[in-house]
Design a protein around this nucleic acid. Structure first.
Length: 412
RNA sequence: GUGGAUGUAGCUCAAUGGUAGAGCCCCGGUUUGUGGUACCGGUGGUUGUGGGUUCGAGUCCCAUCAUCCACCCCA
């Protein structure tokens, strides 16, 4: 079948079954986040291209080749947001909230990256993001992790792994970087081609290499956690103490590197191995330099983003809602009255579908397919006597009763 | 951006280069107000699209698009 009109590659529709699952996830996020006193914000999908160049970093893949960026009719350079943090910071600054104390925000919505689609990766995908401005941690870092964990737990996801790292700060990261690059250059003959490139471009990424050969060499590589400055080391220690106290399990993984330039200190990922190559389901960290970078006062902050579609893949799709009543109307005379009864039952709080009249057999078939709990059979006899015949679709029993009886009968 | 696999009915899939089929779903029927089972019948396809080879292409070749998976990268 030739589909002449198709959605854009990697951009998929959310059909009812899918959306039910998303709503379940969003519902859990709202409940848990608000329990930590975070407030929802709704931010633009279109932003000035410049925003992401200055925040995420011009050299990152996201900015250099994955952004949907274009010039609009007025000559403005705009793009579809590839992530949420930069826009949130922009909004925070634009609203002049830098002197209003810490801000606790969360949001959910679509993000866009023009990548090659694969499992767990789409060009338009949804993130649930959370940002906490004006707090330096480590107490808040612990709380963010605790919040993230209870969110995932609320979804029934208990088999996720929390990987934790510290990326250091302006003081210690450059020092570590030179140590690492030295090591990598010395070991260059035992590393693969892409590792050579990454040594120059983004040395911490080398540690992530999937080549067996490289990994055995990299076992001796210096780790960031051994090169943190006193302040970062203490921050990291207190974070771990807090997690231990709350009974939150984690593994320190010195290899995790957040993809975007603005991260420092605490970095974390909740990972599953049930999702193929895209196992990261929720990830984030601290970005103490970003707000200043975008023109605000030096303000520490921490946040994370969760991939809704990835979470959805780990969950059972919830059952479709079952109507309480399917209205079966028999005989043309009863049609109007049956519509009134449908309306009335809805006003009593029931979910009601009308089977549209016509043959009895057809209507019962419809009622069956909708998985209605009851059918309300309305024929001339019922209409005359102001009664409704209610059939229990599971047991097959049916009884004629007054309209008030129907309500109490169905409500038990 | 690179590599591999796959595109036939709404869905899942058949069809030694020789007239495109099945199951499920959907619609209708098996005596006039009763579903889920059974039986009968029916709708439904320019074989993803465009070229090429051939007397003849769903089948072979090329291109293109899409999906899936992996790399890169990331939620």
């Amino acid at each position: 079948m030739a589909k002449k009109l198709q959605s854009i590659r990697g951009i998929h529709d959310g059909l009812p079954e899918q959306v039910r699952c998303w709503q379940h996830i969003e519902q859990a996020a709202r409940t848990i986040f608000e329990r930590y006193a975070f407030s929802e914000v709704r931010l633009p999908v279109l932003e000035p291209t410049e925003l992401f160049v200055r925040s995420i970093g011009a050299a990152t893949d996201i900015v250099s080749k994955e952004m949907y960026a274009f010039v609009d009719q007025g000559g403005d350079h705009i793009c579809l947001r590839p992530e949420g943090t930069a826009g949130a910071v922009r909004a925070y600054l634009q609203a002049g909230l830098t002197r209003s104390g810490a801000q606790r925000w969360y949001y959910m919505g679509p993000m866009f990256r023009r990548e090659r689609p694969q499992k767990g990766r789409l060009r338009q995908f949804q993130q649930i993001g959370l940002e906490w401005f004006g707090v330096s941690g480590p107490v808040e870092d612990v709380e963010v992790l605790a919040l993230a964990e209870s969110f995932l737990k609320a979804l029934g996801l208990v088999d996720l792994r929390l990987e934790l790292n510290s990326l250091g700060c302006d003081q210690c990261r450059p020092v570590y970087r030179t140590v690492l690059v030295d090591f990598l250059r010395n070991a260059a003959d035992r590393l693969c081609e892409t590792c050579h490139e990454r040594t120059e471009k983004n040395p911490m990424r080398v540690l992530d290499c999937k080549e067996e050969r490289c990994q055995s060499t990299l076992r001796e590589a210096p780790e960031i956690t051994g090169h943190l400055c006193a302040a970062c080391a203490s921050h990291f220690e207190q974070l771990k103490l807090g997690l231990d106290a709350l009974g939150i399990g984690y593994e320190v993984n010195p290899r995790i590197v957040r993809g975007l330039d603005y991260y420092n200190r605490t970095a974390f990922e909740f990972v599953t191995d049930r999702l193929g190559a895209q196992g990261t389901v929720l990830a984030g960290g601290r970005y103490d330099g970003l707000i200043e970078e975008l023109g605000g006062p030096a303000t520490p902050a921490i946040g994370f983003a969760a991939g809704v579609e990835r979470l959805a893949m780990l969950l059972e799709t919830p059952e479709s809602p079952r109507p309480d009543f399917a209205i079966v109307s028999l005989g043309e005379q009863t049609l109007v009255w049956s519509l009134e009864q449908a309306d009335w039952l809805r006003s009593q709080g029931f979910v009601v579908v009308h089977c549209g009249g016509g043959g009895a057999k057809r209507q019962f078939k419809l009622a069956d397919r909708e998985h209605a709990r009851f059918t309300a059979v309305i024929g001339e006899e019922e209409m005359q006597r102001n009664l409704i015949t209610v059939k229990d679709m599971e047991t097959g029993e049916q009884r004629t009763m007054t309209r008030q009886e129907v309500v109490t009968f169905a409500h038990r």
